[in-house]
Design a binder for these strands. Structure first.
Lengths: 223, 223
DNA sequence: TGACTTTAGTCACACAAAGTGACTAATTCG
DNA sequence: CGAATTAGTCACTTTGTGTGACTAAAGTCA
């Protein structure tokens, strides 16, 4: 992967793999094969005929042994910033992985997002792009659900949203909104987590609903 | 632009230039130089050292003689679908242009989005990506304002939102939301449009405001 | 065992935001 | 002049959100 191809490839596909670790998001980095103390995002130069998405999925599988529960293109990054390869352009993909099932292969490690090592400039831009995409997709796509295992308690779901939104949420409001959206289905299972009353388990199972029939929203400040 | 380079370029930059024409969005296409009855999006293969954004801006200027009022990357498109060039990957940019100042050069023409000619498959995907980006950025970025001239009436603004959202809006609600967002500033000018009371002119001038302090929104249906 | 702590889950009320129709204002047309 | 047309505002209703207090079911510890 990291050896230089004989005819220089003009683009790469890079994966920003994200999971929730402790109370923060974490990103998967791979140790540089030549300079062992340096790190970079997992990447590859796609085979001819391979789609971009397939290349990103392969990159993720090579790192984790399994596919992310969610993949989405972040965009193309060029703009002269340096990259481990000599490619002029890199296409970045965001991949989400529940932390429970995320066992990285050797030389891959999760880094909490507040504690990342120095990265090549273009990849640093990709990480920023990934967090931005994450924020803006948060209420358009089931991001939080894809970071959780298949069954979860509503408290876990709320904590995941709190992590992603970076603020505390009120339990009653959260559950009221969740009910209105018809996104989860209760299981006939409960989980007792040490103290306190056991919590019912739920799974993500969106039912058809009428799209909220709102007017305009002006949710931007500047430009 | 459309001649095949000696060493095949591996990627192109394509521009989806959008304006509001009549009661519909329109996209700028260029007549194919070899097959005169076929059309495609404006594109170019970037010079070495040129940033992606700069390449997209040049492409737009070449077509319109001026820069779009808004540019945003849509993403990278590959996936084996055919493109006028032989590039494996194309990076698409969305560009917005107020219709008043949009005078296309020769061999460029606006096509209403419901009435597009057949396009190369990859470019068709870009157009779909552009409309999707447009929808999702609508309440995150001043899309509507960038499709209007610098000064406009509130009715024009509302009509633009109605066009973009594909539904009628109630005047009072629209203005109430607009006021709350502190996005426009009234001018000391009025415009009389034939019949009826003259309308005051406004310009886009966002003032700092507190971000609406909402909780979660679950605005998605399926995955 | 029984009081206390802890977490889950719900309720009800206050308040804010959005939908809506009816109103006033200023102009053109005949 | 009055009718028609477009701009702009108001007040009322309906819906959604923030919030604290409540009940429920478990563990802990004397």
């Amino acid at each position: 992967m990291r050896e230089r191809p004989s005819k220089t490839a003009l683009y790469t596909v890079d994966a920003v793999l994200v999971t929730a670790m402790g109370n923060e998001l974490a990103i998967l980095l791979v140790r540089n094969s030549s300079e062992r103390e340096r790190w970079s995002l997992p990447w590859r130069t796609p085979q001819t005929g391979e789609t971009l998405e397939a290349a990103a999925a392969s990159t993720a599988e090579e790192a984790l042994g399994e596919s992310p529960t969610w993949m989405e293109q972040i965009g193309a990054f060029g703009d002269g910033k340096r990259h481990p390869s000599e490619a002029e352009v890199s296409v970045a993909y965001l991949g989400l992985v529940p932390h429970e099932t995320a066992a990285p292969r050797a030389s891959y490690t999760w880094f909490q997002i507040g504690d990342l090592p120095s990265l090549p400039p273009r990849q640093r831009a990709m990480v920023e792009g990934a967090t931005k995409t994450l924020q803006s997709s948060l209420d358009q796509a089931p991001i939080a659900f894809r970071l959780l295992p298949a069954t979860f308690t509503l408290s876990e779901l709320q904590q995941m949203y709190e992590l992603l939104m970076g603020k505390r949420l009120h339990k009653a409001s959260f559950r009221r909104a969740l009910q209105a959206a018809w996104l989860v289905e209760p299981m006939d299972e409960w989980r007792s987590e040490g103290r306190g009353r056991p919590a019912q388990l739920f799974r993500y199972l969106p039912k058809k609903k009428r799209r909220p029939h709102r007017g305009v929203r002006f949710d931007f400040l500047y430009p």
